[in-house]
Structure formats: C-alpha cells, structure tokens
Design a protein around this nucleic acid. Sequence first.
DNA 1: GGGCATTGATGCCGGCAGGGCATCGATGGC
DNA 2: GCCATCGATGCCCTGCCGGCATCAATGCCC
Lengths: 294, 294
Amino acid sequence: MHEPLLDLRKLRYFLAVAERLHFGRAALDLRISQPALSRQVRQLEHDIGTDLFVRTSREVTLTPAGEQLLEDGRHLLAAARRAGERARRAAGQDRLTVGFMLGVQVDPLLAAFAAARPDVTVRLERLRWWNHGESLQDGRVDVAAIRLPVRSDEGLRMLTLDQERLVVALPAGHPLAGEASVPVGALSGEPVLRYADAGSAWNAFWTVDPRPDGTQPASGPEVRDMEEILAYVRAGRGVAFLPQPVTAAFRRPHIAYVPVSGVPPGTVVLAWPVTERSGPTRDFVEAVRAAGAG
Amino acid sequence: MHEPLLDLRKLRYFLAVAERLHFGRAALDLRISQPALSRQVRQLEHDIGTDLFVRTSREVTLTPAGEQLLEDGRHLLAAARRAGERARRAAGQDRLTVGFMLGVQVDPLLAAFAAARPDVTVRLERLRWWNHGESLQDGRVDVAAIRLPVRSDEGLRMLTLDQERLVVALPAGHPLAGEASVPVGALSGEPVLRYADAGSAWNAFWTVDPRPDGTQPASGPEVRDMEEILAYVRAGRGVAFLPQPVTAAFRRPHIAYVPVSGVPPGTVVLAWPVTERSGPTRDFVEAVRAAGAG
DNA sequence: GGGCATTGATGCCGGCAGGGCATCGATGGC
DNA sequence: GCCATCGATGCCCTGCCGGCATCAATGCCC
C-alpha cells in the first residue's frame, strides 16, 4: 500500500550529488556515509522509474532525467521550505521559538522576555553550528543565541550577548593538564582535531587560527562528533579547542580542560533574520537588550 | 542529524484530514489505520513547529497555520508529482512502463511489442484497482492492462483486450460449491463481501449490481484485503465475486471458486492517457491492436 | 441526568527501512 | 603494473511506521 510518492529527503540527497557530481563529497556534506547516500539515490531512481546518473568509477554524469530533476527539484525543495515557513507564520503572534547552542545559558533571556511578554508561549530548540543559519532563515526558529562566526550571507542581525573563554581538551596525563592555564603557543606542536566538513570560517574557529602569537596549528584527524574528539584526545592523538561552557556537558574521566591564554575569547550573539518575522521576535530582542543594559 | 524537512507522505496525510476534517474517514481513504494517521499528523505538527488542527472529540478544525498549509500543500504535492513526471518524460523514448492488474496476462502484449520495437526497454508495474488512474495520469506507467470500470474523469483512451468470466468464492462446504456453474440468482441470499473504501462504480463491480435477473445483492462485511475476503468466505460469513483469472493467485484449501452464470463478463482493456506521452506508448497500442486482429 | 455511540489519543509490538562499517570491483594515473 | 580513487555491496542494528486493542472525552437521546 506504500506510496511511491517523491521523497523530499531522497530528493535533497539527489540534489547534493547532482550539484557536486560526486557521491563521496555529497555524502560528507549531507553528514551521512557514502554507502547510505548511494543507496538512497538508487531508491529514488527506482521510485521515479528512471536512472538519474550515469556512474563510472571515475565520473558521475547526469542523465537527461537527472538534469530535469535537478532543475525541478531545487524549486520543489525551496517550495517545501517556504510552505513550512508560511504555515508557521500563519500560526500567529503568540508563540516564539528560541534557538540555542550547547552551553549557552538561555534562562536569563527567557526570564527577561517572559516579564515583557507573558502572553507569548516560548519553545526552545537546540541548534548546531552547521545548521543554525538554515533554521533561522526558514523560520524554524525566530531568534537564537549562537556562537560566532556566522556566514555573512545568512542575512542575520545580531546583538552581542557574551564572551566565552577558550579551553583546550587534553588527556589527563598530558604535561600541561594540571596547569591553571596554558599559552596557545605551548600547544603549537599538538595536532588539532577538526570537524570533517566545516567551512573555512568554522575551521579557523576550531583550530584557533590565526593565532596572535603567530604560531601555526598542526592539522590533526578529522572528526564528526564530539565523542570522537574525546576518544582521540584521551588516546593522545590530538587536542581540541572549545568554548569553556560546553565542557560542562562533556566531563569525562581522563580528560582535562585547561583554559587557553593569549587568544581572544569567543563571542555569543543573539541572532535573528533581517526579514523580521514576528512582533515577538522584536520584543525578545528588545527585552534582552534592556536586560543587558540594566 | 535528522532533517526536519517537510515530509510529503505526512503532508499527504495532513491534506486528507484537512479536506475531510475527520481522522477516521481520512484514514480509510488513505488505507491506513486511524491511530497511525493521528500520530503522523502529530509528528508533522511537531516538525513544522505549530499545531495544524484543533481537535475536540466531536469536531476537527483547522488552525490558521493549517489553513495556510492546506493551500500551499496542495500545490506542493502537485508540484512533486509533476516533477517526477517531468523527470520520467525527460528520460527519453527508449523505455516504456507497462502496468497490469493481478491475473491479466501481459506476455502476449509484450511479445507483440518486442517484435515491433525491440529497441525499447520495458518495465512492468503491478497496479491495483484503486491506484491505476493515478499511476497512468502521473506517468508512472505509460500504458496498462486493467479491468473496467474506470472513472470517466481519468482521461484515458482504451482498447478492449479480453473478457473475463466471473466466479464466486464459496466455502468448500457450501451446497453450491460442487456445481459446474451457479446462476447469480441462487446467490441473492448470500451477503457479498465488499471493499471498504471502493467508489460506487467499483462497489457495483464487486457486488455484481445491478443483476440481469433483477435480484439484489445482500450487503456483507467490508474488507480491505483479499486475504480478509478469503477468511470471511471460509468462515461462511459471506461470498465474493471476482474475475476468474485472479483465482489462480489465491487457490486455498476449503475455498471453492464456481463460475457464475447469468451475468455479463468483466472486461479487460488496454488503457493509456489521452495526453499521449511517448512514441513507444503509441507503438505499444498499435502492436497490441495489430496482434489482436491477427 | 445517565447510559451510549462516536472519535481521536495512547500503549504495545512487529517488520522494515535507513544508516553505519568493512570490503569489493572497476578505472585511470604514475 | 602497482596504486589511488570512488561507487557498489554485504551485514548489522536502531528507530520509525503501521497495526491492534484500549482509553478518554464529548454530545446525544431517552
């Protein structure tokens, strides 16, 4: 009884492959494995009833059907996002969704807003560094407390909330693990763990590059998950930098977090789309601004 | 890592509810259970981030967001179907998908076509009485060997292929089970099993109504599945009419199939959309027509 | 006003799809 | 001719979807 209706998730996978003409790269970007992607695309081809790619082990090409679907699929996906956004928008002015990143304290913000607009119901949504832009743009969240950097093309307005000290994750046995703080230059020989598919801006963030003292980060293994980072660190395969507040969520035996000196702090901002969506959004920003001043 | 992207299956479910404002009816129409439907709609509401219905146990109403999504969703779903169709269409003229219903022999048709157009690759797709129209319209199949009736608004051209004798499924212990054939009038007292959500035309088909001898079919339990039919028949709870060729797929102990006399035969037709899609479609029809004449 | 029918929600379970890891096979490049 | 690249395949495991049974809320009717 199952419907062979077009599946937007598979369509999104297809588009990723079609735009890069490369399964491995597309899989990285989609944050799934290459085999999973291959299979999903195959299934899409079966659902539609025609091949979309010509695959050789050296090259991936679009079939005519693929070309057509690349064109239509982009519009379809955009229309789907718009539909969700418009529905949310129609829901009215008595609700507000606030995004936040791990470790960012939102309760003061919520308290300030609740005082100003007790009539508005607030929902919370956890964001990741790689999806905050999309979430704000398509209206899944109205306003979010996130870490810099943000891409300039994301169309966000921002208000600085806080500064976060940077710490380094070291294995407990590391010579520097006991220090009260460690200058970044002392870590220049250590390979730095990086997220596999971060853009250059986020890569710079994770590796603390450039560094005020001119030292260069050594490139370490690529990871895809915080637990992977911790496993590498514990094994002595590398170190990782992260904002101090997130460490609370990842206290582990054999892992030490040591504040890093000689680097600028990270910045937490309140961000919202330039295309202001709801009255509550503006009120939230204003309430936070006022509370910050007071 | 899961995407909260709009899911078209859930959207289709939502539309069914939104148009009927009734979960139970919509579930019947979608051929899933009411609990499953309720949950899918709930999940859609969670994905989008806002309620779509106001539910009381007496009435279901759309929220403003629901109204909006009803409007946009229809277009989105239509666009999705079109996208699939256009992709198939772009695939070119060297492939043809042939639909068929259970029990219809397609090999002569395929043989005739293979002789005429050996260059075309043929795919087969099994159709059901309740989805053949959609499949032909959105191009999932190019041409299909199906049973009448078809709805006149389905925009199909047709060519008669065959006539099928009607048989009745009886429990093996039934007094008429041993007969070589049974007049339809002899069955007028028996409750007739019917599909739960068939339109009136198909309902008439399953119940053999009206009957040439003027007898009236008695209404029996509604079923949703051929196996349910057989279970009912075996239990003596009712009888069911079906075209003789489909019985081959459902031979079972304790079930007897007896030809029915005094009723017109069923008709198998080759059907294709008036908006002729591919050259191969026309060639297929022509090959079948020619073979039928020969 | 109390039983009853209607209707959507919930608990529980089984099957399957989707994703991950390890590995294979094909294809160019050096 | 070896090797690197890259998509496909085998195997497993988890989570989701759907089904059945049942519950809870709400009008209706006598």
